[in-house]
Design a protein around this nucleic acid. Sequence first.
DNA 1: CCGTATCCCACGAGATACTG
DNA 2: CAGTATCTCGTGGGATACGG
Lengths: 97, 97
Amino acid sequence: MTSEPIETALALLGRQGTYRVLRALLDGPMRFGELQGVTRLLPRTLSLRLKEMDAMGWVVREQFAEVPPRVEYRLTPAAVALEPLLRAVEAWAEEHA
Amino acid sequence: MTSEPIETALALLGRQGTYRVLRALLDGPMRFGELQGVTRLLPRTLSLRLKEMDAMGWVVREQFAEVPPRVEYRLTPAAVALEPLLRAVEAWAEEHA
DNA sequence: CCGTATCCCACGAGATACTG
DNA sequence: CAGTATCTCGTGGGATACGG
């Protein structure tokens, strides 16, 4: 067995907030504060999750040289490709809640 | 937000061994020992996972009055309905490993 | 605004040993 | 055979406070 990449992906998907962040960013890039509001995650948790998703190649951090500072996060193509998977969970939950 | 059932399902899917157990049982019912062999999980971990999957309504434990004792685990229809989801992760991993 | 630093608690999971 | 009992360690995540 040892389907390593699959299990790594599932592990991250199962962590607190990953699903919410993905769902939010599928509608387009967002700033840290916006993500915080829509996902209702503590800054610490959101920060950790974004770092993990970055390390996973799911998210890209883009910093703008402005005042006040502005940072946006957007999904990589690999993360966008997770959408069918999200739809599958949602469809499942709809049926078997 | 608060898509509770979705996140609960994802959380369990992300735990150690859940994917392996699901994949194994999709081929038909199996005994504890067989599951242990094919998933290569410690008895403790496998036991915990099966209990959680049971509580989740994904798995049914069937005990036979035999000597030596025989116990089989099989998936519920709700768990079988997760297969498209598993295929989606596998397809994703295939593309974006 | 965008995070990081701490402190703390709970629990997930490995290893090993033991029982109905 | 099919698990449970312990012990231990590491980490996930909540709350609050602070820094660039």
